[in-house]
Design a binder for these strands. Structure first.
Lengths: 359, 359
DNA sequence: CAATTCACGGCAACCGATTGCCTCACCGAT
DNA sequence: ATCGGTGAGGCAATCGGTTGCCGTGAATTG
């Protein structure tokens, strides 16, 4: 009778609050609140009764109200550039696991590779969450520093002065790639570059160059290309103009696209050209040939980043000194092989034959 | 002097509120609030002054406080089963675009294929967002109905009575696949099943069966398998015991894994076996051979779902009658071909030769 | 036995924005 | 001169928890 007909109301009667519970349990609202959030503060029997009443009424704390008074939302944002990029999946998983363990929820925001969208996502996030993991960003260093002044921020795969960062060991990765190719007899390596705004791209190219110099390999760079399969196909066209027997690509998508593009031009991998990628995305093991690539501990990176943010939320400022560096390893699959001088091997390679370069 | 040293405070002094703005502008807080949210309600000159002061002070409305009094968070949750599953990427993109257009933010929650995690994600979401898009779910119908009583919910790729749903035309998709295979001369099709809890799996198998009957094809079913590449590799083993010349897989990952697994056993696709997948994930076009698959308008599905949820939030209940059905199309690539009776074609197929079935 | 501590629960003031209602000033119209 | 209308702004309640402080009765202590 006093109960309104549930079917009439759009989405149920207004949710039950601590006030409802308090009334039914014959206590003050504050006691209800403490019964849940301050164990030991209220008498065990009372707490039990409150909990029972709350259960019967179907009470759920309103996180918005809680957030307003505590200034804690118990959420951290993970901002990724592109949800379609499998690279982020493991990072997100790791962050989610670490956050959940600490009672936090991860909200994911996808910037869709757009500076503008990233900004607006951040704009909202900064006021709505307790901390932020920027899993690679296209924004300027100073913009990131700005955000970092307002909320705990950890930046991934990029070094920003005065902001806690967590990067993978691109230098060592590039070195591994160079050594691997060198050991296979390659003497000339092309680097297929990703976005100019990418910090990782700079690191990878620079380190590859460095390593190549030490190993007496010659390197050159083509690009930039958009870091997806399409970009790789485009790269193939440009590569063909001046081919080399070995390629290191900014990431796996580029590498995969490149291999596709080469195949379309009758250039075989690894028969004619060896290709190394970066990131070890799931697809790297799906394509034919399997892609040799530099793998980073992505899950661990996610966990570490989230823990760090959480630490900054609870504690004080984070270490903003040197960026944390995560180890990498080279996963050797079938896209790299010994260099072949033997031209007979190339069955359908007129374009290559026309090239002045000896592969 | 009165200003505390910014460097001393963990994350800036307490954010500036409408009260600060009001004081500096010499008006009441309510006027500040209206200046922003109720255009025309305050004098243009006053509004302008308030806006200027707010800018100078760096005022940003606190979404939590706003949400508390309006009972609107302006967020919708999109819950996906597995962030690593590329299938969801386009859906999320579409939902995000539609939400953004309406001034809403999408928060993504990844259930990691776990009923428990999905539940807890939902548990939190239900109180923290205005509406929910369940992009496929492993929960029970009744649990979903429960949630749907509390907040606007739209379910994707699954039909739940009394809850607004949006599915792709699995029946037609299965028919297309069957017709395509039939036209290529295949007479016996194996369905490689996905999770039993998947509504889509049931639909696909059932419809395939139906279509096959009409086309006088014989079908059988193996599985269930986990809907990832690994599952597909396992399926290959089981398939080999009783091979057929054509296969329809629950989704692309399974199809890709199956092709891998078959290749490892010397069975070639499409030479020996034709394979059709579902979903048309990005990788379907990356693998070799390119995967023939049933494609659905995923982006559109995301847009539609979000619009629907938004409509329910603003308006009343949603239509819960028949589920909306989105059209599909068959993308023919290289994993399907004419059936070969010719055994010479199989160079390394002893296992197949041992089979009693004529392919 | 008096003094003090302690456990337990209630009161009420927040958190920051929104909004219904009221007041006041000023307008033209009667 | 009076009245109704209207534009502009302020007051204060409200959303639902949280938490500092206080009061009470009981237990502990010297």
């Amino acid at each position: 009778m006093a109960e309104p007909n549930v079917l009439d109301v759009p989405w149920g009667p207004r949710a039950v609050t601590i006030y409802d519970v308090a009334r039914h349990a014959g206590v003050a609202p504050s006691t209800v609140s403490r019964a849940f959030s301050r164990p030991g503060r209220v008498n065990a029997a009372t707490a039990e009764r409150i909990r029972r009443v709350a259960d019967e009424l179907g009470y759920r704390a309103n996180p918005v109200a809680r957030a307003l008074s505590t200034a804690r939302t118990n959420m951290i944002a993970v901002i990724i550039l592109d949800i379609a990029n499998p690279f982020y999946a493991e990072i997100v998983r790791g962050a989610q696991a670490a956050a959940a363990a600490a009672g936090y929820t991860v909200v994911l925001a996808d910037a869709q590779e757009s500076d503008r969208l990233e900004r607006s996502a951040l704009e909202r996030a900064v006021t709505a969450v307790d901390g932020i993991v920027l899993a690679s960003s296209r924004m300027s260093d100073s913009a990131i520093r700005m955000i970092s002044k307002q909320k705990p921020v950890v930046v991934l795969n990029r070094a920003v002065v005065d902001v806690p960062c967590l990067v993978t060991d691109n230098a060592r990765g590039a070195r591994h790639a160079a050594e691997h190719l060198g050991a296979l007899g390659h003497e000339h390596v092309t680097y297929v570059a990703g976005p100019e705004a990418s910090w990782a791209d700079g690191m990878r190219w620079w380190s590859l160059r460095e390593a190549a110099a030490q190993l007496s390999l010659r390197v050159r760079r083509i690009g930039p290309f958009t870091p997806d399969v399409r970009g790789g196909v485009q790269a193939a066209e440009q590569f063909q103009a001046q081919p080399t027997s070995a390629v290191v690509a900014y990431n796996d998508q580029l590498a995969i696209g490149l291999i596709r593009g080469l195949a379309g031009r009758g250039i075989r991998v690894p028969g004619d050209v060896s290709v190394v990628g970066f990131d070890n995305i799931a697809a790297a093991n799906l394509v034919t040939p399997g892609l040799t690539t530099v793998a980073a501990p992505l899950y661990t990176q996610g966990v570490t980043a989230a823990r760090h943010v959480l630490g900054m939320i609870e504690g004080g400022r984070g270490r903003t000194g040197q960026p944390g560096v995560l180890p990498v390893r080279l996963v050797v699959r079938d896209s790299t092989a010994e260099r072949h001088r033997d031209v007979r091997q190339r069955r359908r390679g007129p374009a290559l034959a026309a090239s002045p370069l000896a592969l």
